[in-house]
Amino acid sequence: MTDTTASSSSPVFRFSAAETTKHVVLIAGAVIVLLPFYVMISFAMKSPAEIMQQTGGFFGSQAPFVDHYCSKLGNPESACMVNPIAYNFTQAFTKAPLLRYLLNGVIVTGSIFVIQVAVAVPAAYALAKLRFWGREAVFGLVLFGLLIPVHAIALPIYVMLAKLGLTNSYAALIIPWTISVFGIFLMRQFFMTVPDDLIDAARMDGMSEFSIIWKVMLPTAIPALLAFAIFSVVAHWNDYFWPRIVITGTRDLFTPPLGLREFKGDIDGNNYGPMMASALVIVTPLIVAFLIAQRRFIEGITLSGMK
């Protein structure tokens, strides 16, 4: 016993040494993790010359510079002076229809989530609370579905959509994600914990099964639903692989990741600033939401860990 008291009085020194080491390691990690964010924000604020010559520090000098495209159009140089930040962001929004991309991103992620819930919640309810022939088989199918990442079978899905003439449409962006076996599984686990009495009482009151699902069951599952929403929205806002496959023609259907990729494709050295500004615009919504509701986000993203 005396031993432990001795060692708990001395830790004051040793502890802080250990503590410092820990912080040094963690800060070194943080620097590496933040490095690309630093580059992104910094380049979005600098003029092309400052980027190419690696001058201006983090913020750039913010000195106005001549927009070459503007002066090539015959305008006098004095009329073509632009501020780097203003230049980068206006270019980001005008060189490509970035707003349209963002809108597409909202439409696609929103539709995916709504349809996933509309399909998964009733199925989860039936699997959790109704008895019917074949229930175990259906649940087995759900468990089997959990084995298959949709990206892995993207090619045959693409062939099916192409045969149906659906590539290059919102439908193509949304359809493969309408079924979330994970959503079914998650909601089922949650519904299992809802007492049967609650449902029986609702039936006594003459509620239809349909309104039991949406008015009784769903409100009890709000935390799970919210976590699932974050999981789904983050995955599909950031998804690049699937849109890349099914959207080949018109920019009108580009999601933010595709738009950014195209921006990179036709880049010349002068456009690093605007490109980083676009990247910043695309990455910011989720990052800000994450910083505001950190706990919820971490819960949502790691949801798949709670199987």
């Binding site: 943080a30 993790v33 964010f37 992104m40 380049f43 950031n238 980083m276 990455v283």
Partner: peptide, 23 residues
């Protein structure tokens, strides 16, 4: 640190890949 280390998980990988290419 937890907040910082989690940032790359949230950011679109395609965007960050392009940034890494510049870095």
């Amino acid at each position: 640190y937890k907040t910082i280390y989690f940032l790359p998980v949230m950011a679109a990988l395609i965007a960050m890949a392009i940034v890494w290419e510049l870095a």
